[in-house]
Amino acid sequence: MKKLLLASAVAALSLNTVQAAPTLYGKLNISLDQVSNDGFSEDKVTEVNSNASRLGVKGEEKITDTLSAVYLAEWEVSGDGDDETLKQRNRYAGLKFANVGTLKAGRFDTYFKTAAGSDQDIFNDTRLDITNILVGEDRLSNVVGFESDPSLLGGLGFNILFQQGEGSTDDAGEARDGFGDSISTSVTYESDIGLALALAGNFDVRSKWAALEGDSYYTDAIRLTGSYDFSNAGAEGLVIGGLFQQAEPSEEIAGFDDLEEQAFGLTLAYSIPSTPWTVKGEYVTAETSANDEDVSFDRYGVGVDYKLNKQTKLYGVLAQTKADEDFGFDEDKETVFGLGIDLKF
């Protein structure tokens, strides 16, 4: 009897250990890129790029039938060896309430950023990532967020994030030391007919402005995204995505009157049925206005993926980004041709 009880205890302990085991995951995305007029200069360079390669650990610990503890910690790694430092990406700990949502705290992407998914940022984690053109692609520290479970309301999801300033100052020099000094929120909807929509807002979030040489300012912004999978309409594998956003600084910035960015993007991806091939196309434009002047970035890009298996794909991209002459660059066009491998594990 004692042996039976001991065997049962060992089996139960082993089962609990398996259930509680964290998941180690990662991605290596390495590309060889030929860039003409790099940074809108006269330079022509050939680069091996790591493209946000990463390593992470995540897990879920069941507490009760309706409550679990969740955690994630992720680092960017230098797949090309240029940087030996592990850079912080998303990391958080929280509680997941079954069929309700997840409350978490730490450092992670804003809900404004995640409103643009793979159907809008189809060249994500390459030199053609939309973060190089658009305001609002931010990951924030010192945040508390809640994400509702879309199943709670038939595909409708609500997400909100509060960032604490912790003694920092805003662009006007005022202290930011309260709860929710910056807020990012979104409402999302996914249907079973292939339609997905998101409306997101950033309020007093420090964001990088590509048109202002990458300088960051506290910003208010609205983003609307959508996509439609035509599989239910008889066009299997065809997905069209779109994005519109508008951004302006939360406070007046010295030297810039009526600063504003308006951006629009349209994407198309076609996974050819019964083949490993996917072809892609993208057009993105961002116009920034200030001091009664308008300047813009316009990007046209095409790409092709070849899936070797569920974890590995080969890809090629060709894109050109045009900048207004008013930016004062040496050249008004930058062209990128790249070949890469994306390996997930």
Rank of each mutant, 00 (worst) to 15 (best):
L4Y: 07
L5A: 15
S14C: 14
V18E: 14
V35T: 11
N37I: 12
V45F: 02
S53H: 14
V57N: 05
E61D: 02
E61V: 10
E61K: 12
E61H: 09
V70Q: 00
E74H: 12
G79L: 03
G79K: 04
T85Y: 06
N90D: 12
Y92D: 07
A105T: 13
K113F: 10
A115H: 01
Q120F: 11
I122V: 14
I122M: 03
I133S: 03
D138T: 14
N142G: 01
V144T: 14
G154N: 08
E166L: 14
D171I: 14
G173C: 12
R176D: 12
D177P: 07
G178A: 01
G178K: 01
G180W: 03
T185E: 15
T185W: 07
I193Y: 14
G194P: 09
L197G: 03
L197F: 05
L197E: 02
L197I: 05
A200Y: 00
W209H: 04
L212K: 04
S216Y: 05
T219I: 08
I222H: 14
S231N: 12
I240S: 02
G242W: 08
F244I: 04
A247R: 06
A247K: 07
S250Y: 06
E251S: 14
L259H: 04
L266K: 02
L266H: 05
L266T: 01
Y270C: 05
P273K: 07
T275A: 10
T275E: 13
P276Y: 13
V279P: 00
K280Y: 00
T288P: 05
N291G: 08
D292H: 04
S296P: 00
D305Y: 06
K307P: 05
Q311C: 02
V317N: 14
V317S: 07
E331K: 14
L339D: 07
L339Y: 04
L343G: 01
